[in-house]
Design a protein around this nucleic acid. Structure first.
Lengths: 212, 212
DNA sequence: AAGAAAATGCAACCGAGTAACAAAACTTTC
DNA sequence: GAAAGTTTTGTTACTCGGTTGCATTTTCTT
């Protein structure tokens, strides 16, 4: 799994990590807008152009860790057990992520994670950037769904869009619960119910509630 | 309907319009990124700070006209004829917009409109800004759906998110058809079919295609 | 050890957006 | 219709994100 690792490559990894870590630390301490990229560069003892050779935009300094999840939904569909439907696989997976308190579900009350999510959901530029990651996710999911066999490209695309959107709203809803002061033990069952409600809706459509 | 209109107010309206019109003209001629706000300000013979007193960001200069559509989906739901379901009303309305070649459906081959859409869909910062308008739309639609009676707030929120998302994808798909060189007369019937497919999916869910 | 290749730092630059304050334009009042 | 009050504007100067060109250093190759 580990890549070819010359000294050069190792150093780059370290710089990259140091930049992201330091940036997040500063962002959480003083707020995203109150920290300039020059501050981050200075703290890591690197020049500003170098920083931008590692990260294309300030926002990416904060979102680096989240980028790991790229294509997760698509992988779940592609790697689902035989005989299981894509939607069922995604539902199960979401419940699992919830129980694991995965930060991306929004449901995690570790102080640092919470501060991070607070920043994320209240900083428009971060949210905008996050959506661009989600777009890539959506594309990959659309391909996975198309490959799974159901429907044409349009249908797969629409389905992917709906699923990714619903995931976003669920995470946001979970974050809101915690931001509203709820304890996680108390919010978790509700989050599971919300997820089931959302997946029921995805599976059976809005027809029951809002007509055809 | 017309607002209280002193001289001052009239002048402001004119400046606002001149800024947006001139900006769009320049953007279409030279490209969004190749025109600076200073260029726009100079062309309208206004200072840069003044420009920003009228529009909070460069992107809004381009999106001014689109902002008119704010809350359209919500209005359709709220103002639907008695006995008609929200989803049916939205579906009908979308087909109507399609036949009217409304630019927001992506399906309009007027040269200027097409150039505008090309710019819109290929400029990330414009797209990002557009999404923020859509978020407001989504909120309003969620309220309208909740008021329409079906389901709790979560359900209404999820439904609104799905509907707005689907609209976006349909418009994007239509734009792609035209960008691919298709004539509008040829693309229109297909656009209607796509819309029906999308609304069928919204109404009946992904279950049929991708399992529960 | 020498030279190619890649990464860095430096300095200067561009463009979006904002702050401070003074000047001008419109509105209101007498 | 002039004076006083309010709102809008221009000027200047600034901050910050992001980029460019080029010389210097560091790593990789042979």
């Amino acid at each position: 799994m580990t890549e070819e690792t010359g000294l050069r490559e190792r150093k780059k990894q370290r710089t990259r990590q140091a930049l992201s870590d330091t940036a997040v630390e500063l962002f959480l301490k003083r707020g995203f807008d109150q920290v300039s990229v020059a501050d981050v560069a200075a703290a890591v003892e690197v020049s500003k152009p170098t920083l931008f050779r590692y990260f294309p935009a300030k926002e990416d300094l904060a979102l680096y860790r989240i980028a790991d999840h790229q294509g997760e939904a698509a992988r779940v569909v592609t790697g689902r057990p035989a005989g299981r439907s894509p939607l069922a696989a995604l539902r199960t997976h979401f419940h699992e992520r919830l129980d694991a308190h995965d930060p991306v579900t929004g449901l995690n009350d570790n102080a640092t994670v919470r501060a991070f999510n607070d920043m994320l959901y209240t900083t428009p530029s971060l949210l905008a950037r996050l959506i661009r990651y989600a777009d890539r996710d959506e594309e990959l999911l659309a391909e996975a769904l198309a490959a799974a066999g159901g429907g044409d490209a349009l249908t797969a695309g629409l389905a992917a869009a709906q699923i990714i959107t619903v995931h976003q709203r669920l995470a946001q809803e979970n974050w809101r619960k915690l931001a509203g002061g709820r304890r996680i033990a108390d919010a978790l069952p509700e989050a599971h119910r919300d997820a089931d409600r959302a997946y029921d809706l995805l599976g059976a459509g809005l027809g029951t509630e809002y007509g055809r």
